[in-house]
Amino acid sequence: MKVLVATEKPFAAVAVNGIREAVEKGGLELALLEKYTEKAQLLDAVKDADAIIIRSDKVDAEVLDAAKQLKIVVRAGAGYDNVDLEAATAHNVCVMNTPGQNSNAVAELALGLMVYGARNLYNGTSGTELKGKKLGIHAYGNVGRNVARIAKGFGMEIYAYDAFCPSEVIEADGVKPVASAEELYKTCQYISLHIPATKETKNSIGHALLSSMPKGAVLINTARKEVINEPELVKVLEERPDFKYLTDIMPGNHAELAEKFAARYFSTPKKMGAQTAEANINAGIAAANQIVDFLKNGNRKFQVNK
């Protein structure tokens, strides 16, 4: 059986070596499609693949139609909105992610953005300190927990809201649970976003929540672009000269934000939360091991489609 690694943005060589070792140790064949420039190349490569490992690459109905032998797709990373889950289910293809493998990398970036915001984007003016400030973590999953762990070292007062995480789990980490997103935003000067992009969350972070934040508010988004209501974000930035927005997912209205709010807005050129050597290796090898376990033993532990 063949495992295809299809990556427009390739894994590091050491990660590919680790993937190859895991795949071949499992008695499977590895094929690589790296730095491809056209979808046709992907469609051709998937024709005889039993499994696919991807990063931000899109697996839609057309790809699934072309992959007649495909049994499993693993997204090396936490987010999986680049895979058409309904189409995968219709094709009887299992879709998995690799939760937790990129979490520390994303969390460290979130704290780095907080420091950058606190010091006025390193523009030479007097900034503030993170110590003693209230940090709200919106979604207390793998990344959120790592953010809390690191933020404790800065002496921040940490709150969290997660509709699906029991309060006692949050409290056990020395973090204060709150009952709603509204309470989180009203309470905390810093908010670190970690919610996925779903029907319920898309455009959910808008004027009502953001305008309720305390003076000197800083919103950090290392989650997904789609969760932000971008026109309403502009309105908040216009109304509040004290509000800052920092992200590693370039907004659709980036040019407008950069022009109007250069001193209070920052976006990395491309998404980079998981762009560390360690995360790259961890997620790739985890994806390979999950594929071997699925094909050999039927283990569906990290399946995300029904």
Rank of each mutant, 00 (worst) to 15 (best):
A274M: 06
A287M: 10
G273P: 01
G252M: 04
P269A: 11
A283Y: 02
A279N: 02
F261P: 07
A288I: 05
G284Q: 08
N289R: 14
D293L: 02
A277G: 02
D248E: 06
V292T: 03
F266N: 06
A287R: 12
I285V: 15
F302N: 05
I281E: 13
V292P: 00
G284N: 02
P251H: 07
Q303L: 01
N280S: 03
Q303G: 00
K301T: 11
N289P: 07
E256G: 12
F302I: 01
S267W: 08
I291S: 02
A262E: 09
Q303Y: 00
G284H: 05
K271W: 12
G273S: 03
A283T: 07
L295P: 00
E256Y: 13
M250H: 08
F266G: 09
A262C: 06
D248N: 11
M272S: 10
R264S: 07
A279M: 00
N289Y: 04
L295S: 00
A274I: 07
G298W: 01
F294S: 03
R264W: 00
I249P: 07
E259K: 15
S267E: 04
M272G: 04
T268H: 11
K301S: 08
L246D: 08
L246W: 11
F302K: 00
N253M: 12
T247I: 13
N297L: 07
A255S: 14
G298H: 04
I291R: 04
A279Q: 02
N282A: 13
G298K: 06
Q303W: 00
K296P: 00
P251K: 04
F261H: 06
A258D: 13
R264Y: 03
N253R: 09
M250Q: 15
D242H: 14
G252S: 13
N253G: 14
A286Q: 10
F302L: 03
A279T: 05
N299E: 06
R264G: 01
D293A: 12
N282T: 08
I281H: 14
A287Y: 06
T268Q: 12
I281W: 13
G252N: 15
F266T: 04
F266A: 04
T247K: 06
A288N: 12
I249M: 14
A283F: 07
M250E: 13
I291Q: 00
A255P: 10
